[in-house]
Simulated assay, not measured.
Amino acid sequence: MTALLDAALDTPPAAKDAVRYASWPARAGALALDVLPGVALITTMALLAVTTTHGSWLWWVFTAVMALAAMATFANRWLAPAITGWTLGRAVAGIRVTTADGAAAGSPRLLLRDLAHLLDTASLLVGWFWPLGDKRHRTFADLLVRTEVRVVDAPQANVRRLAAVILIATAVLGAGGAGLGYWQVYREDRAVEQARSEIAQQGPRIVEQLLSYGQQTVVDDFAKAQSLATDQYRPQLVQQQQAVQKAGVTDNEYWAVSSAVLSATKDHAAMLLALQGQRGSDPNTLKFITATVRADFEKSRDGRWQVATLTVLKKPLMGQAGPPGAAAPAAPAPPPGRPAPAPPNGGPGR
């Protein structure tokens, strides 16, 4: 009996406190809990930010959540171990990263270790599974920076509850972001549909007023036309109007016989129009006009559609009225691609 007691007292301390290395499942679970929630949230917010208008309030929300998720992930992996001795995943698994002599690994070494995990991935994932055959359960990163992952007593705090709260918060933020993203896309789609509908109805009337004017009402017609042009296009329009006044004003009226919306966003649109018109007021000298133009529109701050550019695609053909069957001679016209020379305003039915 005395011999057995003496043998027990003589047992070396190292035998009582043998080092236990973390198992591969424990390491994988800890890594997943540390990294996957942040990666999932960052990826979700990045995708939502890409589908949202850059600079909008919702874009800033997604970007802010993405940045906070990245900061929280980095702090958990590199700062928390230096302060508390744990990451969240390792605390739940009851493991800790140490140096080869069992000392705590500092933040710089942990950062280098995570960077060295690129080698584990670059080796066709062989490095990640290396602990299954290594007697000290080390990855290539552990071998490179001389670290080990050991089993230790878990902290007294209820880390499992904290981990559950973080996972639930991540899921709620991801679902909420997806809902906001869908709502924003739905709103933008509706806005585009509304813009397309508005320009399909208003576009032809705007171009008709832009290109029509009367000899007796030319001042009001030109002023109206200028209000239908954007600030960038208005100087060019005024120059055309001045040229018309110098040449002598006569009645000039256009109407759209066919139109098609080429493209539309909530603030910009393009339309193709086939126009017919007449110039003059004397039935004996009345001239009939046909032309094809492209009109680009922009929405003003007060919600009105205005012409940003007006481009001739098919030269206007102008013929004089005459006896039935007589050919109508074509008048000179600006080459394709040049802005329509006649200033705007007035409307059909004048």
Rank of each mutant, 00 (worst) to 15 (best):
A8D: 14
A8Y: 09
L9K: 15
P12V: 08
A14G: 15
A14W: 15
A15Y: 13
R20T: 10
A22Q: 04
S23H: 00
S23I: 01
L36E: 01
P37E: 03
G38S: 01
V39G: 00
A40I: 07
A40V: 11
A40K: 04
I42F: 12
T43S: 15
T44R: 03
T44F: 04
A46N: 10
V50L: 05
T51Y: 00
S56I: 05
W60Y: 15
F62Q: 03
A64F: 11
A67D: 11
L68C: 14
A70D: 10
A70R: 07
A70C: 13
A70I: 09
F74A: 15
R77C: 12
A80K: 00
A80F: 09
G85C: 03
W86G: 06
L88T: 09
L88E: 04
V92A: 02
R96S: 04
A105R: 04
L112T: 01
L112C: 06
L118E: 14
L119P: 09
S123A: 15
L124Q: 05
G127Q: 04
F129T: 12
W130N: 09
L132R: 10
R136D: 13
R138E: 13
T139P: 09
V149N: 06
V151M: 10
D153F: 00
L162Q: 15
V165E: 09
I166A: 13
A169C: 15
L173T: 01
G174Q: 05
G177S: 06
Q184D: 15
R187C: 04
D189A: 10
A191I: 01
E193F: 06
Q194I: 10
A200Y: 14
Q201W: 13
Q202Y: 10
I206S: 02
L210A: 09
L211K: 01
G214T: 08
G214E: 12
T217W: 02
V219E: 15
D221R: 03
A223Y: 01
A223E: 14
K224I: 10
A225N: 03
D231V: 14
R234F: 06
Q236K: 13
V238K: 12
V238L: 07
Q239I: 05
Q241C: 00
V244D: 11
Q245R: 14
V249D: 09
A264K: 03
T265F: 05
L275W: 03
L275V: 05
S281W: 01
P283T: 07
P283K: 03
T285E: 13
F288P: 00
T290R: 11
V293A: 00
A295R: 00
D296P: 11
K299V: 00
D302E: 12
T311V: 08
L313I: 09
K315D: 08
G319F: 02
G319N: 00
P323C: 01
P323K: 12
G325N: 14
G325L: 08
A326D: 06
A328I: 02
A331Y: 06
A342F: 12
P344R: 07
N345V: 06
N345G: 12
G349M: 04
R350Y: 11
